[in-house]
């Protein structure tokens, strides 16, 4: 009897709550679109493209305002999101530092598996780039011998210790048995600029960051770290083709702070699904060498994050946190 009563009471409660719960949620104030990297980099370009598409297609009643929080390899952004727990008006464009930064900075107090997964927009790729002035470097072998010849004078630019490119740099150091000097810059765009200006010797930029310089003939890719050659770079061999077992991707997903309301999550998921399916986004994916087959979301994305996090723990253990942070 008590059981029935409780049931009835819960049903009544549900009935009362239902209209609120299922009412269409939509942002009531501008949405902060946090980018955990600097301006001009891949994450930044993507976030700003998405923000523009949201406005152009009038997908949100309130504007999305992109805010860069690149500090401490994304630590600033992660901490900010953690502090925004339960907030329905903040979402974040993430990259792999989403996994690596909390692993390397244990006292950050952030567990990304608690964040609210919204949608995986793309998997981004990496290539090894040098300035076209380097006539002596034409392929991976000549690159490796040039690096070995230069020793620590060889400067690799990246977006920060613990960022994905530093992980990839550490993986290359382990595979080719050389050591380089890794210099962090705020954002992939600045890294690209410093390669073109010969301030650094090589980078592992994403295609979108180097694309315009590549088209202008200022930089050249040597290797791509993908499973198969990308359509945008048909003449560049993959590391695997050359017998080097490095394959590394960058996730580009949108996530909310911990404890976002389910209605809000649903609204954002639909929003980003619409963006994902748009012609503009799919075109961008092709031109910038992104893999965008289907948008992962919800539990599937949560699983993906958990797996990726574990994979990065293993990766960092293998190459050593010191190799990544340069300590």
């Amino acid at each position: 009897m008590t059981y029935l009563k409780t049931l009835a009471a819960s049903a009544a409660a549900l009935a009362v709550m239902a209209p609120a719960a299922f009412a269409d949620w939509a942002p009531r104030k501008p949405v902060e679109f946090i980018i955990m990297a600097g301006t001009g980099g891949g994450a930044d370009q993507i976030a700003r493209l998405l923000q523009g598409l949201i406005e152009k297609k009038d997908l949100s009643p309130r504007p999305f305002i992109p805010i860069n929080k690149p500090g401490g390899s994304g630590a600033e952004a992660l901490r900010y999101m953690q502090d925004k727990a339960g907030d329905n008006h903040t979402v974040m464009m993430t990259l792999n530092s989403f996994y690596t930064t909390p692993i390397i900075q244990e006292d950050l107090g952030v567990d990304v598996t608690e964040f609210t997964p919204i949608g995986l927009m793309a998997m981004d790729t990496f290539l090894l780039w040098v300035n076209t002035d380097r006539n002596d470097i034409t392929d991976l072998d000549s690159y490796v011998s040039a690096v070995k010849g230069a020793g620590l004078d060889w400067k690799v630019g990246g977006t920060g210790s613990g960022q994905e490119d530093s992980v990839l740099t550490a993986m290359m150091e382990a595979a080719f048995e050389y050591e380089v000097t890794y210099i962090p810059f705020p954002g992939g765009g600045t890294v690209a600029k410093n390669l073109i200006g010969n301030q650094i010797d090589s980078t592992v930029n994403n295609p979108s960051e180097q694309m315009e310089f590549y088209r202008a003939g200022n930089s050249k890719p040597l290797v791509q770290f993908t499973g198969e050659r990308m359509a945008a770079f048909p003449d560049t061999p993959t590391a695997k083709e050359l017998g080097v077992d490095i394959e590394y991707y960058m996730q580009r997903s949108v996530n909310g702070p911990p404890g976002m309301d389910p209605e809000a999550v649903e609204w954002y998921t639909n929003l980003f699904q619409t963006l994902f399916d748009s012609q503009e986004w799919q075109d961008f994916c092709v031109s910038d060498g992104l893999t965008c087959d289907a948008m992962m979301n919800g539990a599937e994305l949560a699983n993906f994050h958990a797996t990726q996090k574990d994979a990065h723990v293993a990766l960092i253990e293998q190459v050593g946190a010191g190799a990544i942070t340069g300590e």
Partner: peptide
């Protein structure tokens, strides 16, 4: 260069990408 010199131009850059322009050399 496609690299903004200030936070405001960073947003302008985003706008340009939407308009189908790729800032760069």
């Amino acid at each position: 260069l496609g690299i903004p010199g200030s936070p405001t131009t960073a947003i302008l850059l985003g706008g340009m990408i939407i308009w189908g322009l790729r800032p760069g050399p």
